[in-house]
Write a protein that binds this DNA or RNA. Sequence first.
DNA 1: ACGTTTATTGACTCATCAATCAAGAAAACA
DNA 2: TGTTTTCTTGATTGATGAGTCAATAAACGT
Lengths: 193, 193
Amino acid sequence: MPKVGMEPIRKAALVRATIAEIGNTGSLDVTVSQIAKRAGMSSALAHHYFGSKEQIFLAAMRHILTLYGAEVRGALAAADGPRGRLIAVIRASFSGGSFRREAVSAWLNFYVMSQIKPEAMRLLLVYQARLRSNLIHDLRPLVGDRAPMLAEGLGAMIDGAYLREALKSGTPDRIRAAEMVLDFLNTELERGA
Amino acid sequence: MPKVGMEPIRKAALVRATIAEIGNTGSLDVTVSQIAKRAGMSSALAHHYFGSKEQIFLAAMRHILTLYGAEVRGALAAADGPRGRLIAVIRASFSGGSFRREAVSAWLNFYVMSQIKPEAMRLLLVYQARLRSNLIHDLRPLVGDRAPMLAEGLGAMIDGAYLREALKSGTPDRIRAAEMVLDFLNTELERGA
DNA sequence: ACGTTTATTGACTCATCAATCAAGAAAACA
DNA sequence: TGTTTTCTTGATTGATGAGTCAATAAACGT
């Protein structure tokens, strides 16, 4: 019973299923059939809409990065002053949308993918550049020349927190993860002031 | 012209080739044939000595962790006082042996592997526990109750630095990476004192 | 009513690879 | 010398999975 205008619906379902399946399996060794099955369709249809497995993966990665970007933008809009904005960016990095188990695991695998697929690398570099830019922008008025180095360290700590969550079983503790990073930030700011 | 006593030599060659090949490819999608070829033997021989691809991977992972452990032990032996020991542990984490491009890339892939293979997870948890234990032991006399939280943060930053190096092309800058983490440590210690 | 576009799948192709096996050749041993 | 053990590989098997294709069917336009 074919309906019309299925394309965006199917694509969205496949993207969701891909993230779930990667998070579940814990690796990129996921077959198109598995993804399609979870999304409720045949593997042939998945190929019909995306053309290749790689395109499906890239769409999933874009989706995760888009979610994250929206989260950060929203948090920044509601924040006040450099310090408030820094806190917002860090909190947003550990917000519910991007810090769910499956998303964290998928994220880790996208790092691996970026070592192989240039397009994935590109996407990841965009994310890193945006994070660094955000951090430096608001660190500069507070710590001056130390801003770039601090941004690097905070960025690394955020990524590392993700990495470590990917290993733990059970629900990620996003409050604790955020507090850990904020704690370091506070110490640095006290010193700078 | 078969010689005798080849087993340890072959195994070592395979382990080295595995790390090189994973680092080179940037993923675990490496065939036994590729590894064997780089190690200068047939794939059948690799299976003969290791039994399965998974065992080859695990041996490679053990090797990397052993290298790292030795590096840390050595650095600790030459260090003095809590502060000196902390610096030693951090520096060792970025020492030449474990921070070469191929090793970093392989390391990242072992994280992925640990999501699938329990034995790999076990190995990684041993590494994490040892790092945490080392850090907390020497942080305690300097910062008291904040030690566990700080250790967590430093550990995350170290892992994050690895993660980020895996992406960059070119030789990893181990001095800079170590300085970044040491910088955070210093700030925290100044505050604690 | 009828051709066209969109949706959908089962069946198939083709390549890849882990793992096995039989067999050869050199050393060790009796 | 002959037998056993160690080392080694080419060839083969068996499974798996990405991507293709032909065919079906519903909606849409005319």
